[in-house]
Each structure stands twice: as structure tokens, then as C-alpha cells.
Design a binder for these strands. Structure first.
Lengths: 340, 340
DNA sequence: ATTAGCACTCGTTAACAAGGAGTGCTAACA
DNA sequence: TGTTAGCACTCCTTGTTAACGAGTGCTAAT
């Protein structure tokens, strides 16, 4: 449907606009040395592209900017992956050379790198906990009536909660109870814990332990709150230096959304793997309808367990960000799999 | 040095300016019904106050705003604590009624409440870990060459790190080692752990366990990184709606500072207890030289363990914030002591 | 000591003109 | 038929000017 030349012009215009953040006029396009036709011709073409909905004007006699449909087309059909300079590749690798003792640190660093290199906000959703399996349960008494319940998963993740001990329960009973829990629950995926507890364990405990009910309430509570997964940010404020956010009133709702963990989850958590791009209003949230979000997944043991995302203005350096996101999510996957 | 009337006018002016955020002129002051002299008189007094350095003008013929010295005087000598309405007291109590299973949640909530009620940014530094004592060490094997080392403190706080197991070490040796660590280290304050490890434990391990050196490096690393204490934020973006931060270029450095944990620590951690107020440049950081910071401490077992802080514009509702900070830090202390 | 009166300063707002960037359209051109 | 030069037109931006209002400092009268 689009002619070669229209494709070319659309690409040039989007590329230019991404760099300059200003409406692009026919004259400035015509000055490029790879363009061999006049501003007037370009005007005609741009007018057609606008009619088709790929471009917009900010006012009657302004230059053009890409519409959301324009970005979408650009991203779907004109995105030429970019090669990073050797220098940059070295820098990325260097950032990963440190050996990380904890997965958390590694993920934090990943978010940091990604935001630094894209100049956008990077978000990494921590590994989905629910799929991991129980490795060990332990209860350590702190005082007469408090203990900390510790749950270790097979990935080495540790969850803990302080629980109240009812007066009626004595030490040996607690020990027995923990033993029972370990016998029965090791290897069970976390998301099944609560059900299994209710279905099997109650009966068993009933046989062996007196007064276990109040105790169980505490434990159930502790086990069920294996909270929403961790969210790691990098360059939270990078987006503030983009010219489209010079107005503080555009910034406030955006930053507020970033603070709302549930919204971020809803926004980023995706069933599909591979790179996905949402442009402007394609994101369901009003607060980020002027932003684009690019996500991909990373994995441990070839299961997709988490999401890596970049949030920036619609006028985002798509080719560069896509390339970086790809490289960095793969680095993260590699590092996670080789070290943990 | 200051006459009654000058004190009164300074107070009125600061109060008014805190509300309106606009330079205060003699006429608007004279309109108050508790003022029985003319604008001209007020002008004379204000000119004197300005000469003494308590007030400033934004331009030659503008009204006055308080200088930092003016705020300082106001805070030191004119601060009349405010009574909160029954309604507000009820709301604060209500926010605390939920029973929190974890200290973390309680602290998070505290930061939230404080920011909501002050419309500023609230920061709570988590309990100082170093003073707490070791309750239990445990190592749980995850695989052939990885284990998670878990440290429980007497406050119920759990620290954990994944450590690599050298090939030479076998299971029973690890068990023995952990036993030794527990025997020797329980009750030791965390900040002493590393020293004790090096001074006592090395010798003991040397007797009982072969090839313990590489293992120890891992453990030392794990024990020594009882990282900087947690920082909890509430209303991170509240400050953005203040008129003095309409300009995004003032906002960026401020938000960036908020993200830097070490700077925040340096800023807030204070040896003194009780409410402390730092105004503008009294804070050492350039990025917050237009802000005031009010801090106080909270405690567990009558030891001061953490800091509660409010960051807002210099034009902050000092009386209200001071009152709220006092109430809320005490509530936090009470809750922590009764529940944990 | 207080205050009314007045000249003066400075920020804000509106109106207006000039310049520039860009467009759409028309007519000429290859 | 596709391309382009030329031109009128639109709209943003910038600068100028004028008017107004809020506020001050000073002087002189009370």
C-alpha cells in the first residue's frame, strides 16, 4: 500500500523526530544527502501519509510528528535492529563482570545498566516465586510467645515471618509440628502450599498435636502471604529529563503509577515471551498514555520467570532500546542460570 | 532584641507565607482583625526585620518572605505546637488499628500515614541492625555446591545469602561448622560478628574441620554484608505538588537524592534523639537546599534504633508536621514494643 | 510613635508587529 | 504524469509597548 518512497520518508521522519523531539518539516528532510527530491514533493508525500493516519501536525502549519499508528507501523515494519559499538558492548559486559552473590543484586544491577544505556526507566520484575518449590521450613523461637517462621525455596529464596505462639503450645510440640510440615511439604510448589496445608496437614496434626488450631492460623497466614513479586527499578527519574515531560503535571501521575506495585505488575506481566512493544494508549493506563513500554522475559532453567521492561516517551529510540533489551535480558538469563 | 510586635509580625508573616506560598505585603497583614495598626507601621517593622536578616524580598517592591534565618527563629522561638482535631486523631489511630504481622509492614504503614497527613515526603530508616544480637545461624543446602546461609537476630529479623560450597567440603563438615558457629556466636551483636569470626572461630575451625578456608571466605562475606539498613518511603512524590517545585529542573536533583540510599542515610541518621529540624542550606546537600528536613527517632526497648523523617519545602507547615511527627513516631515506638 | 499620602519599582498581562518555519495549492516543467 | 518553483496563508515565537496592580520607602502631618 505504501510506496517505497513513503516507507523511506516515514522512517526518516520517525528517526529524525526521535532525535530532535521537534516537528519535522519538508525542508529539513530535503536537506539530507540521501534525498534527491524537493521539499514540495516531500510535502505531497507527507500529506498523503498524514491522510493515511501515520502522521500528525501540532498545528495547521507545523511540521509533522508520528501518530501512534505511525509509531506502530514503524515498529512493526521499519525497525532495523542497530549494532552497538564495540565500545558499548564492552561497557555492558564490564558491568556484568562482578560476581554477584545474590540474584537480587544481579537483577538490581541489570535494571541499573538498562536504564543507564537507554536513558529511560528500567523495571525488572523479580522471578515468579509461586513456581518455585519448598525446600525447607524452619521455626526459630525468639521468645516465650514469638517465633520466626522461615521458608526456603529450591532457588535459595528465603521468606520469613514472625508469628505469635499461643500460650498452650509447648516447645516439643512446635518441633514435632515443623517436622511434620517438612515431611509433608518439601517439594511442593509455593502456590499449592495453602491448599495442601488445609487438605492434608490439618488431619495429620490433629492426630499428633494438641491445640494446634491457633498455631495453624498463624502459619497459614505466614505461608499464604508469599507476596507479590519484587520490583526492581533503574533510572526511575531518567524520564524526567525528556522534553515531553517538562510539564510537572504530566510527571506526577506517571511517577505515581511507578510507585504502585500492583499497577506495574498488571502493566508488565505478560504471558508471551519475546520482545513486546506497547505504544501510548495501547497501554491501558491513562497516566502512561504518552509513554511506550517495551518488555521481554528472562528465564531460569528455560522457564520464563520474570519480565524486563523499559518505559520511556513514545518518542523512544526503539531500535536501540530493542537491541539493548534483547542483549541485557539474555545476559541476565545467562548469569542467573550459570550462578544460581 | 525583638519587640513583642516584631515577634508577632514575624510569626504572622511566616504563618501566612506557609499557607499562601506568596510574598506577604503590609496591606494583607493589616487586614487581619487582630492587628490594630496601619500598613505603614507594618512596613516600618518589616523593613527592620528585613534589616536584621529575618525577611527577604523577591524584588525591590515585592512583599516579604522569610529568610532561612527567619525560619530558624520561627522554629526556635515561635513554634506553637498545634492541636490536631479529634477527627484527625481518630484517623491516625484508625490507620494503626490493623495488626501487623511484620515490623516491616508496620514501618511501611507509618511512612505512608506520615506522608498522607503532612503532604510531604516521609522517610523511615529501618531499625539499626548492628545492635541486634545473633539468635541463630543455619545453612540449608540447595544443591551440590550451593547453600543458603540464614541468620536470625533476636528481634526476629532474618538475613540470608546464597553461598557457594567448595567441592572439598562435605555435608557432615558443614553441619559441624554450623554447630560451632552457633555455639560460639549466639548472643553476639551483629557488628561484632566479623571480628569474632576472625579472632576466635578460625582457630576452632582449624582444629575440627579440613579445608575450611574457602568456606570461611564465603561465610565472612555473607556475615559482613549486613547491608545498610532498609529505607522506607511514603509519598515520594508529594513534594512535586508544592508550588516551589513547579520547575522540573528543581525536582530532578531532589528525586535523585531520594534514590541514593547512602545520601539519605547520611542526611537523616542522627546521634541525638528528639525532634530535629534542618532548614534549607543547613542540610549539607545542594540538591535539597530548598527543603527542610524534620527528623526524630523511634525506639525498641528504650534504645533509639531508627529515624523517622519528613522532607518538604522550607515553607513547611512546621507546627503541624512537628506535632504529627511526634505523635506518629511515638505510635510507632509503642506498636513496635508491644508487638515484637 | 503612628499614619496618610505619594512617588517609585517591579512583575504581570494584553495587544500588537515582525520574522520565521512550515503548509497547501497552482501552474509550469521534464 | 510525476516533480518542482512560487506564492499566499497559518501559526508559533519573539520583542516591544502600555497599562495596571501590588507593594515599598520616604516625608510630613498627626
Amino acid at each position: 500500500m505504501l510506496t517505497e518512497r513513503q516507507l523511506f520518508l516515514l522512517q526518516v521522519l520517525v528517526d529524525d523526530y526521535i532525535l530532535s523531539a521537534e516537528p519535522i518539516g519538508s525542508r529539513s528532510i530535503s536537506k539530507r544527502e540521501d534525498i534527491h527530491f524537493s521539499p514540495a514533493t516531500i510535502r505531497n508525500e507527507l500529506a498523503d501519509l498524514e491522510e493515511m493516519g501515520f502522521l500528525e501536525k501540532t498545528h495547521l502549519s507545523s511540521g509533522r510528528i508520528p501518530s501512534e499508528k505511525g509509531y506502530r507501523f514503524y515498529v512493526d515494519h521499519l525497525l532495523s535492529p542497530i549494532l552497538l559499538s564495540d565500545d558499548e558492548m564492552r561497557n555492558i559486559r564490564k558491568a556484568y563482570t562482578e560476581r554477584y552473590y545474590e540474584a537480587e543484586k544481579l537483577i538490581e544491577t541489570t535494571a541499573q545498566i538498562l536504564s543507564d544505556f537507554t536513558n529511560c526507566t528500567a523495571i525488572v520484575l523479580g522471578p515468579e516465586l509461586l513456581d518455585t518449590k519448598l525446600k525447607h521450613i524452619q521455626m526459630i523461637r525468639l521468645s516465650e510467645n514469638r517465633a520466626v517462621l522461615i521458608i526456603v525455596t529450591d532457588t535459595g529464596h528465603v521468606e520469613n515471618r514472625v508469628v505469635a505462639l499461643p500460650d498452650e503450645v509447648n516447645g516439643s510440640e512446635i518441633e514435632r509440628m515443623v517436622n511434620i510440615l517438612n515431611e509433608r511439604l518439601i517439594g511442593v510448589p509455593l502456590y499449592q502450599l495453602k491448599v495442601r496445608l488445609q487438605q492434608e496437614i490439618h488431619a495429620v496434626l490433629n492426630e499428633h498435636i494438641h491445640h494446634y488450631e491457633r498455631m495453624m492460623i498463624e502459619i497459614e497466614h505466614a505461608l499464604s502471604v508469599n507476596g507479590p513479586d519484587q520490583i526492581y527499578y533503574g533510572g526511575k527519574n531518567n524520564i524526567l529529563s525528556q522534553p515531553e515531560f517538562r510539564d510537572i503535571n504530566k510527571v506526577i501521575p506517571l511517577l505515581n503509577v511507578l510507585e504502585k506495585k500492583d499497577l506495574i505488575h498488571g502493566l508488565l506481566r505478560s504471558p508471551k515471551s519475546g520482545i513486546q512493544i506497547k505504544i501510548g494508549k495501547e497501554n491501558k493506563l491513562v497516566a502512561i498514555e504518552d509513554c511506550s513500554v517495551i518488555t521481554t522475559t528472562y528465564s531460569v532453567d528455560s522457564e520464563h520467570v520474570g519480565t524486563v521492561a523499559v518505559i520511556g516517551p513514545k518518542r523512544m529510540a526503539y531500535p536501540r532500546v530493542v537491541t539493548l533489551l534483547d542483549i541485557i535480558s539474555k545476559s541476565l538469563t545467562n548469569n542467573l542460570n550459570s550462578n544460581y
